[in-house]
Design a protein around this nucleic acid. Structure first.
Lengths: 164, 164
DNA sequence: TTCGATGCAAATAGTTTGCATTCTA
DNA sequence: TAGAATGCAAACTATTTGCATCGAA
């Protein structure tokens, strides 16, 4: 089982800081590795491996998808980044920010929004107490229906409508 | 987006009852379809499509994997079954039982256990109230660390040990 | 007898692995 | 300059689609 996503987070403020963390661990600061970090710092939202490989025209150079995957794995092992899953889509990769973001994902329209960590703290405490289980929502965020889709719920058997 | 998993559940007690529900909807009660239902009724736990296709020697005949996938989709649309995701593995398919089972899945050892629905009810109410979001744990059950792995947590960076 | 359902082959998406080459420390 | 990292090709897993054939109603 891959448990890289259980590595404790290592927050950094920019590419140079992240690169320094790599060197601290005897890892090399290659161009391809920098590019992955640049893409993530530039996006400020979870990205798919393919989005990272595509680069940002004029901003972040494109790179080889295989290397992106290998570097995402390395960066995650170090704790610089994390990944999460939303629906049946490809995995999403994000920086380990100073503030630990957790998400709520709508199964109908596909929207992703940041959730109040305090509320999740209460949820975790509840589950820990009653079920003797340490719940985590980082890797598999809570899914369900956002307020808009919940209202439109009866029509939910067909095709989700993105209402953004 | 595929939202078959948002279909309301339709509980049945045995294969014949499930087959009758299919006919009610103008769907055919083919041999391959019966076999999928038999496998699920026989297992009484969530199964992967491949496990269903393999059959149970002397109990449930094996069948074509493609047909299994097509039939799982049909059965899920009807509400007779549901599917859920655990870690990075293949999807798991289960009957829509009368009692609505929800699970807690350990990210370290891979164990899956049934959770008290009442506790999840409180969790849902909490999230609905504070976040205006209707959480559901059917499709993506809550992940985390079971009590055994939580204690052994410091060693969690490497390889999860199945302690069952 | 007619469509719905099947089963094989082939395609697809996401991700991983092998290996000779390149580049960082 | 040694060993880490790259990048291309190829493999792999889970799942879906095309299509000619079959079988349930």
């Amino acid at each position: 089982m891959t448990v890289a996503h259980l590595t404790p987070p290592l927050a950094t403020g920019d590419v140079e800081e992240a690169v320094a963390a790599l060197r601290d661990r005897g890892l090399r600061a290659s161009a391809a590795r920098r590019v992955v970090l640049e893409a993530l710092f530039f996006a400020d939202r979870p990205l798919r491996a393919e989005e990272i490989a595509e680069g940002v025209p004029g901003r972040v150079p494109r790179s080889d998808l295989t290397s992106v995957y290998r570097n995402l794995e390395t960066l995650e092992k170090v704790g610089l980044i994390r990944h999460l899953h939303v629906g049946h889509q490809a995995g999403l990769y994000a920086l380990s920010g100073t503030e630990e973001r957790e998400y709520l994902t709508c199964e109908s329209c596909g929207s992703i929004r940041v959730v109040c960590t305090a509320v999740l703290g209460v949820v975790r405490a509840l589950i820990r107490e009653h079920e003797d289980f340490v719940a985590s929502f980082r890797h598999f965020p809570i899914a369900g229906l956002c307020s808009v889709c919940a209202v439109a719920a009866p029509s939910v058997g067909e095709e989700g409508q993105r209402h953004v």
